[in-house]
Amino acid sequence: MAERPLGELLRHARQRLAGAGIADAAFDSRLLVEHFSGTTRTDAISSPDRIVGQVAEIEAALDRRIAGEPVHRILGYRDFYGMRLSLSAETLEPRPDTETLVDAVLPFVHETAAREGICRILDLGTGTGAIALALVTQEPLAVAIGVDVSDDALATAAANAGQLGVSARFSAKKSDWFAEIHGLHHLIVSNPPYISSSEIENLQNEVRNFDPRRALDGGPDGLEPYRMIASGAARHLEKDGLVGLEIGHDQRRDVTGIFEQAGYHLFAQYKDLGGNDRVLVFRR
């Protein structure tokens, strides 16, 4: 059938996903139908008899979801810190727990900008640009460099900056950690790969099969990126600057030890929405 009423299509989509065992069938089906039909939640309530012509596109999207593809990969975007960020094959989906890192360092960004007239931020492994873009959209005097080794990710981050109107204050730079980075920054932030190589095969299918492995794999013990950051950050950090990091829920002690050995002290620590250790902030 080429066309169906909106209310009927929503019920059909929910039933298809629920029948396939999708945990958030009602939510995911609504997102997919609204996205591909150009309708809203209000339309579903006020105009359930509205005829939708994009049935084939919606069925194809449901097929992808049933095959295990995450709903936001199908949509092509994810909302983060009030921003709508485009995704691509080599970017992680920015997740709500990472907003904890933004919340942790944003007061420092505001204070530095007020005192210095600028706050220079370096975001290592920027992906979609989520962390850096959240900070520069919240602080008009902040400027950021988003670093990644993936051309795909860098293009996505730059496009997101353009959509948000902050391209003048965000630059995407290809670099293997600090290899191509010059100058000093007030703040270095990162949500690095922190899953140990052997654990990746045990992750949920949606993560293992659709998130870029390079953005997940933190080496044999999941700590290699932290060693890289700890060993190189001092050469790129202003006096009294901070390093803010997302960590795995069981990595607080190990990551703290790595940075203490490199001459840092733990400045602050934060838990995520689930009460797990999630963010560490260090100062030399």
Rank of each mutant, 00 (worst) to 15 (best):
A153Q: 00
A44C: 06
F259E: 10
R213I: 13
S167F: 12
I118S: 15
G76V: 05
F210K: 09
N205H: 11
A60Q: 11
T256M: 13
D211R: 06
V136N: 02
V207C: 03
Y270I: 02
H35M: 06
D49E: 15
L273K: 11
G53K: 08
G183H: 01
A56W: 13
H185D: 03
A18I: 00
Q138P: 09
E116C: 10
A23K: 12
G53C: 10
S29W: 13
P94W: 02
M83S: 06
S198I: 12
A89S: 13
V105S: 04
R84S: 09
R78G: 08
G219A: 06
L154Q: 01
Q204H: 07
P5G: 08
D176T: 08
P220C: 14
V281F: 02
R78M: 10
A25V: 05
V105W: 05
V149M: 04
H35L: 11
D240P: 10
R278M: 06
P212Q: 08
A153V: 00
P212L: 07
P193D: 11
L164M: 00
E139M: 05
D240R: 09
F282L: 04
R11D: 13
L32P: 08
L141P: 09
E3W: 12
R115P: 08
V33S: 01
L266V: 11
R41Q: 14
A130W: 05
S190K: 00
D148M: 00
A179G: 04
I258R: 10
V166I: 07
S37C: 13
D103W: 14
E69I: 02
A23T: 10
R78Y: 14
Y226R: 05
S150A: 09
A18M: 07
L280Y: 01
A215V: 08
L273N: 14
R95N: 05
V207I: 06
G125T: 03
D221P: 09
I74M: 04
S197L: 04
V143Q: 13
F108D: 10
F267A: 14
R50G: 15
L187K: 02
A89M: 09
I188D: 00
G21W: 04
T40V: 03
H185W: 04
A89I: 08
E69W: 06
Y264F: 15
S29G: 15
D240K: 08
R95H: 12
